[in-house]
Design a protein around this nucleic acid. Structure first.
Lengths: 126, 126
DNA sequence: CACGTATATACGTATAAAGGTATATACAGA
DNA sequence: TCTGTATATACCTTTATACGTATATACGTG
């Protein structure tokens, strides 16, 4: 278990992360809201913490968990090259970024270039 | 194996998808570039196709695989609520989108609202 | 200090899936 | 039709991990 993607493969872990979007939560609160056993919650939180997705704070016997951005940001970054596949306005968006931060713009706006080669062939597609 | 996240948990599958960003590829081409056995490539492509990440076209004995947007888009959508955690300029970006496509703007720019509640407690964070 | 609450961890079991090897299927060309 | 190339699939083994149950640790209160 190392890559952020493997961590996110587990539905309960994604649910925990989604819970934490609104605010930090204790183990017990997560347990109740997600209807999972306490050891399961603790174990998933352990995995999430080891992977940097969450951090915890002690409050008497309770532990309050909250989100940390890094690993999810990595996932978001991995997704970047694929974004051009959907929503055409991404192009407008990138154009906007090209203007915002010239540091990131490697070449003119070559970022917006679309996939050129497509050899027309017979269809299977199924 | 169902959710897009489980599919992406496998590093070789992510590598295949990344390969396909530039253009469609045959099984053999993927096999060579990623240095994996032919059956492995075929099996991973099978999984990717069943999950909708790729589609294929027949070209004589070869099969050409190319990306399909939907599942990756889902992942991107899941990520949306977390984006506020990083890059402050996302706010500027969303503001820009608010101006671009009024259709998506549900309310004023309530999209930019930030997480309010945070009860200060003693520190563990480890 | 005994007790209740809150959380973490150890241990065992079952299942899923990744990878290998061998083989099947499909197509093209001599 | 025989042969080579390209891809898919079947079968097997191994490993990882999710979950349950039981127990340990830590803190607060009477």
């Amino acid at each position: 278990m190392e890559s952020a993607f493997e961590i996110l493969a587990e539905p309960n872990r994604r649910a925990i992360l989604s819970l934490l979007v609104s605010s930090e939560q204790s183990v017990g609160e997560i347990e109740r809201q997600l209807q999972m056993s306490q050891p399961m919650v603790s174990k998933h939180l352990r995995v999430l913490r080891d992977a940097g997705f969450v951090e915890s704070t002690v409050d008497a016997q309770r532990r309050l968990y909250r989100l940390r951005p890094e690993p999810l940001r990595e996932v978001d970054d991995w997704l970047a090259p694929f974004r051009r596949l959907w929503s055409a306005h991404v192009d407008a968006l990138e154009l906007y970024l090209d203007r915002m931060e010239p540091s990131t713009a490697t070449e003119g706006s070559s970022r917006t270039r679309r996939n050129p080669n497509r050899k027309g062939k017979k269809g299977e597609a199924k």
